[in-house]
Computed example of a mutant assay.
Amino acid sequence: MTNNRSYPRTVACAGGEVVFRLLTPDDGEAVLAFAQKLSAHDLLFLRRDISQPKVVAAWMDATRRGGITTVLAVRDGAVLGCATIVRDALSWSRHVGELRVILEPGSRGQGLGGQLTHEAFALAIELGVEKLMAQMTVDQRGAIGVFEGLGFRAEALLHDHVKDREGRTHDIVILAHDVAKFQAQMAAYGLTEALE
């Protein structure tokens, strides 16, 4: 599928207007500056530590190759958050996308996370993703609530699955959403324009 969503786009949230735009491989420095504002605990539900320059470089390379699609939330040139859809076209799970959403601490509690998650969800449908997965530590209740509000449901709990910088282990919850079923239901009710 092709991307028909329009970017950049300005959206309103409690903290003021924010621009949603697609990440480009030239955004490495801005993403690194954003990531370095995040706590070590915030980074635990991501597969890699994006506060490290070599990890951001790999992210930009994967973006260039098309395996990762990221929507940035930007205000006054600074990245406030991002929503990423990761797909592996060569795997047995090529119909599955992993959704990763993270905000800098000062932008939380203003509705931006929900808007960014909704945006990524709609983009995943356009990209042809049939199932979306998300993972986070079990104590990230706000994030879990946002995903559950979109229809994600817990599929797995992985005990002691990640280890923080101090060597403490944390449980990860895996949430999933059947995007293809959702899209079919929306089409059946004539509501597909609600995702535009």
Rank of each mutant, 00 (worst) to 15 (best):
A83L: 04
L175M: 10
G81P: 03
L158P: 00
A30L: 07
D160F: 05
V162Q: 08
Y189R: 12
S91L: 05
R165F: 03
L191A: 05
R75V: 07
G142D: 12
L43Y: 00
L132Y: 10
L112E: 12
G167L: 02
R153S: 05
G111P: 03
L175C: 04
H177F: 08
F182P: 01
A30I: 06
D49C: 02
D61G: 04
P8L: 05
R108V: 07
E29F: 04
V31S: 06
A120G: 15
G128I: 05
G145I: 00
L191P: 01
Y189D: 07
G114I: 02
K181D: 05
V138A: 13
L158W: 01
P53F: 02
G142K: 15
E119M: 06
D160S: 13
A154G: 12
E166P: 01
Q135W: 11
E17I: 11
F147D: 15
F121C: 06
L175D: 00
G106M: 14
D26C: 04
T70W: 09
F20D: 00
V56C: 02
I125S: 14
Q140F: 15
G67V: 07
R168I: 03
S91A: 08
M133A: 14
D27I: 14
L32C: 07
E193I: 04
L103A: 07
K37F: 07
V19Y: 02
G142A: 15
A124I: 13
I50H: 06
L112S: 11
G106R: 13
L132T: 10
F121Q: 00
V86C: 06
G16T: 12
K181W: 00
A35T: 11
G151W: 05
Q135L: 14
Q110T: 14
L38Q: 02
V55R: 06
F45R: 04
A62E: 03
A154I: 08
A62G: 01
G167R: 02
I85R: 01
H118P: 03
S51F: 02
L175A: 02
H159I: 10
G111S: 08
V146S: 01
